[in-house]
Simulated scan of single mutants.
Amino acid sequence: MSCSACNTADAVLGDGHPCPGAAQAAPVGFGAPMAAPMAAPRPPLSNSWQNTAWLSIGLSALYLVVCVVRLVFTFHETSRIESILNAPGPDSVAQLNSLQSTDSLLNNLTLVGFVAYLVGYLVYFAAVRKAVRAAGLNSALLVKHWTYYAWRGAILVSLLASFFNAGSNSTDGSSDDAAQLIDQFKHIAMTTELYLAARIVTIGVLIVAVVVTRNRVRAAIQQVRPTAPFGAGYQPQGMAPQPY
C-alpha cells in the first residue's frame, strides 16, 4: 500500500506513516480562519482614592492632637482659676484674661479641626465609593464593620450632648462669691472635659474605621481589577507583542 500524499510504499510503517506531505500549510489571506476575538483587558484603577484615606487619617490625627491639648489645658485652667480666685492679687485680672484668651484660641482651633476632619472623611468616603463602583463591587462593603457604626453613634451622642449643654456652659462672672464662681468654672470645665474625652474616643474610632475599610476595599479591588498604572514594560496577560 502506498501513501496517498507522497506515493511512498507504506507496507512497513503502517497507517502511522509520518509523511511530510500530509502537513499542509495553514491558509493565508481571505481563506484563513478568523481567530476568536480577544476581549480587551479592563484598564487598571487609579490608586488616588487611597490618598484620600491618608488625608482623612492625617486631618483626624491633627484634630485629635488639638483635642488632647485642649483637654490638658482645661485641667490646668481650672486649677489656675481656683488658685487666682482664692488668693487674688494685683495681676489676677491679667492672668484670668490670659487664660480666657488661650481658651478661646483652643476653642477656635477645635472648631476648625472638627470641620476639617469631617470634610476629610467625606472626601475619603466619596472617593472610595467611586472606586468600589468602578470596580463593579457592592458599595455596602464599606459599612460592614462595627467601627463605622460606632463612629456614627458617637458623633450623634456628642452633637446631642453639645446641644443640651450649650446653655449651661457659661458664666457671667457677676457673682462676688469666689466659691460660687469656682463652682461655676468647675462645672464648665467638667462638661468640657467629658466632651473632649468623648470626642477623642470618637476620632480614634474614625481612624480605625478608615484604616479597616481602606484595607478591605483595597483587597477586594485587587481581586477583580489591577491597580498598578500602565507604564513602561507593562504587558497585560494574554496580549503578546505582535511582530508587525
Rank of each mutant, 00 (worst) to 15 (best):
S4N: 01
L159A: 15
Q223D: 12
A189L: 04
F125D: 14
S174Y: 04
Y148L: 10
F30E: 15
Y149P: 03
V201A: 09
W146V: 14
N97H: 05
L181K: 05
S56K: 02
P27M: 08
S2P: 03
G113R: 04
G31V: 03
N108Y: 03
R129M: 11
G58P: 06
V123E: 05
Q242Y: 07
V68G: 10
S4H: 06
T147I: 07
L106I: 05
V66S: 12
S175M: 02
C19I: 06
V201L: 10
A53V: 02
Y195V: 09
S46V: 05
L141W: 01
P241T: 04
Q100H: 00
S158F: 08
S4Y: 00
T74N: 05
R225D: 00
L71H: 13
S83F: 05
G231K: 08
T213H: 09
K130Y: 08
R80H: 08
T147G: 06
Q184T: 03
Y148T: 10
P27C: 05
D176G: 12
Y244M: 15
D10G: 15
R133I: 04
S101N: 07
G58N: 14
V224P: 03
T102Y: 00
M190W: 08
Q100V: 00
I57Y: 10
A61E: 04
T213F: 05
N138Q: 00
G14A: 04
A22Y: 11
A197L: 11
M190R: 02
M34A: 14
M239N: 12
D183I: 01
D10H: 13
R42F: 13
A135R: 05
V12Y: 08
